[in-house]
């Protein structure tokens, strides 16, 4: 199996607490590019700042046309969809919201799958809508790995449940077991 080059994480309701825990437990040596799409009411700038205090890896809010860099957590800015170009630079769009969301997890997951193909891990965490399910399906179709937070352990079960129903998962785990799994998949 090819070693993953990127991890892409999607969440909404309850996402901040889940991300705090997950990013805090990642191995600081992780060489993968980490991408995060979290629907929040507050701006992504605020979210990135708050997460940085808890994360093992540096956290930044994505700016237009920045490169996706290894070993860094990139947070999607509010009000725009986040996509990746083949040269692994970010692109933003104001296309219609998907699942009432912009940024949308489906859009980011789909674009990441187009870019990293099988060398990608998609993670769907807690959330109260079904954004991310189709995107996770695309990741799997490209041969990437799908990880879903066990719905019973999620603050809001709808999003991980929809991901399981529509895309299925290679791993379905309680939140605190997800970071150790990612460390294992990414470092060995």
């Amino acid at each position: 199996m090819r070693r993953p080059e990127a991890i892409v994480i999607g969440c909404s309701k309850g996402g901040f607490n889940a991300l705090k825990l997950l990013l805090g437990a990642l191995d600081p040596q992780l060489p993968q590019t980490v991408l995060v799409c979290c629907h929040t009411a507050s701006g992504a700038g605020v979210l990135a700042g708050l997460l940085a205090a808890h994360s093992a890896l540096p956290v930044i809010e994505v700016g237009e046309r920045q490169p996706a860099s290894p070993g860094i957590v990139h947070v999607a800015p509010g009000g725009y969809h986040l996509l990746l170009e083949h040269d692994r630079h970010f692109a933003l769009s104001v296309d219609e919201p998907v699942c009432f969301s912009r940024p949308s997890i489906d859009v980011l997951f789909g674009s990441a799958a187009d870019t990293y193909h099988a060398a990608l891990i998609g993670v769907v965490l807690t959330g109260a809508n079904r954004d991310g399910a189709d995107g996770l399906g695309q990741i799997r179709a490209h041969g990437g790995i799908a990880v879903v937070q066990a719905p019973v352990s999620a603050e809001a079960a709808t999003m991980p449940q929809a991901a399981l129903d529509i895309a299925g998962a290679d791993y379905c785990l309680p939140l605190e077991q997800i970071a150790p799994l990612l460390n294992r998949l990414c470092l060995t």
């Binding site: 996509l83 990746l84 170009e85 083949h86 769009s93 859009v107 187009d114």
Partner: peptide
């Protein structure tokens, strides 16, 4: 045009 959005459309 930037490709990522174009292919989506």
């Amino acid at each position: 045009y930037a490709q990522a959005s174009l292919i989506r459309r």
